[in-house]
Amino acid sequence: MAFEPLKIFEYIGERFTAFLEELGGICTTFVQSVVLLFMPPLRLDLFLKQMEFIGVESSFIVLLTGAFTGMVFALQTSYAFRLFGAQNLIGPSVALSLARELGPVLSGLMVTGRVGSAMAAELGTMKVTEQIDALSTMGINPVQYLVTPRVVSSILMLPMLTVLFDFIGIVGSYFMAVYLLGLNGERFVNDTIYMVDLKDVYIGLLKAAVFGALIAVVGCYKGYYAEKGAEGVGKAATQAVVITSVSILIADYFLTAMLF
């Protein structure tokens, strides 16, 4: 087959156009879902159900991840800080890392795996089995009914999960530092409180809210536009997880550069 250099540009152009289309679709879905929040009717039960699913039901996995992250981070930093006798910095460095980065990012990634894929699969199944069409024909706006509660609940729940992650992570590092590495517990707490600014926590929570929006919007968008039966639903769920995970890491960089 002859080599056709123009085909390369055609391919790049097609991929770029598809990327822009998808980005536009995701942004439109987000704006629609927020605007529809302020239009009646307000279905409070749907919001509470989503908050339970996204927040309460994710708390165990977030607690588990947070505890082990704090513990392993304390262990790793202890090796470095021991070289120049600064083990008392373990607490503050773990707390700062958790509040600024690890809390929001790892909570976001854990929730992406659990919730983002489930949203894409649920809405995708509803799409291919005509349940979304059924909502429309009953005069119900599917975005308002399905997407708005998920997006709003995710924006609210991610910061709360991050608080849990940060707290249990610091508790984990405390036990590691005090009971395994033999540091002074009171000093650990005092140094941590002294070094960690409330601003670090707030910005971490702001990041978490942004990640929450990404998880729900991408998950809902991929599900809402799923095609081709079971294969399409599976693809939507996979793409939702991949796109959200990458988006969280990219957004984290820009938010860090802008906010700190």
Binding site: T125, M126, T129, E130, Q131, D133, A134, S136, T137, M138, G139, N141
Partner: peptide, 18 residues
């Protein structure tokens, strides 16, 4: 939406909310 309230649709797959 107001017009659609006068319509009832039975979908091919029934489209029941599972």
């Amino acid at each position: 939406t107001e017009i659609l309230k006068n319509f009832g649709v039975l979908f091919q797959s029934a489209a029941l909310f599972d």
